[in-house]
Design a protein around this nucleic acid. Structure first.
Lengths: 241, 241
DNA sequence: TATATTTGCGTAAAATTCACACAAAACAAG
DNA sequence: CTTGTTTTGTGTGAATTTTACGCAAATATA
């Protein structure tokens, strides 16, 4: 099992990793950030070399305060993307006994939502790439499965939380917002009913467009009214779609 | 960190445990199954001796196919209660660096719903006890926190899944069902509206009561119409409350 | 026997969801 | 520049769902 390591235990211990599913949205499609394994000479990336995978890595027992810290640290190291601990939502644990050929590794999957425009610049293009949701390659380990579960988790969470805040740019249009919800929930809405519902929630503020529009063909820009949103959320708000 | 163990690794590994929050319902209150630590001479229960805690224990790296298997195995060993792997729902990972005084231990919390009447007999009373939700003692480790998170997870899941199936006895009354939902969601419903909604879902079948009632004061007994329920669930059913 | 509590049943008002039509604005093509 | 096509914004009536209640029958209790 172990080779010449200096850390010994009275009974076998598994290795623990954190993996990150980072979702973005470009106004058109959901995107996911992936890394190519083995490009860099990292000690532990000796499996699945050359394959695409989720960013992630091993818990550092003496350093990572929680597994979320592992996720944040590894994401930063592997993709250059620096997120806060609070940006990570836990998806679940994947612990199949043979999911890693090297040793027993259980991984705690996380997902994070990012404003694509803000982070594309800080992403280390040498190591990582954004993939459209409908164009994801086959991934290493059981990362295909993890990705599916993470997405379905996002799909659940959207009923209780403001994913728009995190995925959309500061200002956005109603059609963009609708497309985002449609992309995540994989359904279609009636444009007018969607607009009515949003108006009813009163969480959007119309933005004075810098480029003074002459007509209505160019969609109106909005921003989230965070105060209203947070208040509603505290009172047991539930976004219905 | 380690003492004289024979399992060595090139870098530190955490220990991994599974903990179980087992919920029951006695027709009146939500109950939770707890164990008293250190009653038995177990190798690893040297911490928090004498305190109440959630059932659970260490992942056996070479034996437990998944962490859910750990949960099931440990629950059986510690309380006598034998549940299927599929009965466990993962709540989340708890990984604070100092949550266990002995070594770095991260735990994967699970919850399970059981029919109290069915399992009370098979629970090893020497080791485990059922506690009313409103009368839970202070627990070992971070188990208080785990318990709270597990309950809030149950509260979420109830919107999408049939908890009644798992917690209620085969036949039950409408007031019992209502009380169960009220207990979990911590709200009160109008009796008549609750009945209407249930009738509308058409997942209940009236049961010919063995003790022939003369009046209506004794509530009518129902059982779940599992076929109808499963069909609705497949089609994207969502219990609304 | 009288009183209080619990259960079952039904309905009208209010709120929400749903289906749907049309005009203004921009872009594209000729 | 004219015309046709696409996209966006707006409103309304019908259908459905939720909500708020009233009342009588059936026990348990005093």
């Amino acid at each position: 099992m172990a080779t010449k390591g200096q850390y010994t235990y009275a009974y076998p211990h598994p290795a623990v990793t954190a993996d990150c599913v980072v979702f973005g949205y470009d106004g058109k499609e959901i995107k996911v950030l992936l890394i190519k394994r083995g490009k860099e000479k990292e000690a532990d990336t000796t499996a699945y070399v050359g394959q695409w995978a989720l960013p992630g890595g091993f818990l550092e027992v003496d350093r990572d305060k929680t597994i979320a810290h592992t996720a944040a640290r590894e994401l930063k190291e592997e993709t250059g993307l620096k997120l806060s601990i609070k940006d990570f939502k836990e998806v679940g644990t994947f612990s199949d006994i043979n999911r890693d050929p090297r040793e027993r590794v259980i991984t705690v999957a996380h997902y994070a939502l990012v404003k694509l425009a803000n982070v594309e610049a800080s992403t280390d293009a040498e190591k990582a790439e954004w993939f459209s949701w409908n164009d994801i390659p086959h991934l290493a380990f059981d990362h295909d499965k993890i990705l599916r579960v993470a997405f379905s988790r996002l799909k659940q969470d959207i009923h209780f939380e403001p994913v728009g805040f995190d995925l959309l740019p500061e200002t956005f249009t109603l059609p963009q917002l609708q497309n985002l919800y449609e992309s995540i929930l994989e359904v279609k809405f009636d444009r007018r009913n969607f607009a009515n519902k949003m108006k009813h929630y009163a969480i959007l503020s119309e933005v004075e467009d810098d480029t003074p529009r002459h007509g209505t063909r160019t969609p109106v820009k909005y921003r989230f009214d965070k105060d209203n949103y947070d208040r509603l959320k505290r009172n047991g708000f539930q976004l219905e779609f």
